[in-house]
Amino acid sequence: MSTIRACILYSLLIFFLCNKTEVWASDEFEIITHPGVNEKEITENSLRSIFSMHLKTWSDGTKIRVFVFPDDDPLHQSLAKEKLKVFSYQLRSNWDRLVYSGTGQAPIKVNSSEEMLAKVASTPGAIGYLRKAVINENVNVLQIK
């Protein structure tokens, strides 16, 4: 009996160790906001609170609207790890807790850099992130204090 159970465990282990792990790459990027957002710099705590979907309004009382790339996007992984100092799976489980208990909303997903730029530039109160090379004058860059 116990041999069989052990067999299951071992075979699962072997099976997984043989799997190739994906690379979680990093890159140079900035936090961007809609040009109408007054904030020019922000604390790491507030930024984490915004991307965790807990902080919902800017200091002037307008709605914050959060735009993100899909969970498996390397840039999204970098945002989580480097700017927010959390793992991206934790962001996801946090959003899921909010959405499926009704106590919050999910960020809005975009699928390309062009879409991110266009959405943040055109949505009041928007916040997102982009590679430096793609950022243009239609959005503001938000500095972290």
Binding site: D27, E28, P74, L75, N111, K132
Partner: peptide, 13 residues
């Protein structure tokens, strides 16, 4: 290299 990578990851999506 940077823009090249960007367009590539967009394609994958």
């Amino acid at each position: 290299e940077l823009p090249a990578q960007t367009s590539e990851s967009d394609e994958v999506k």
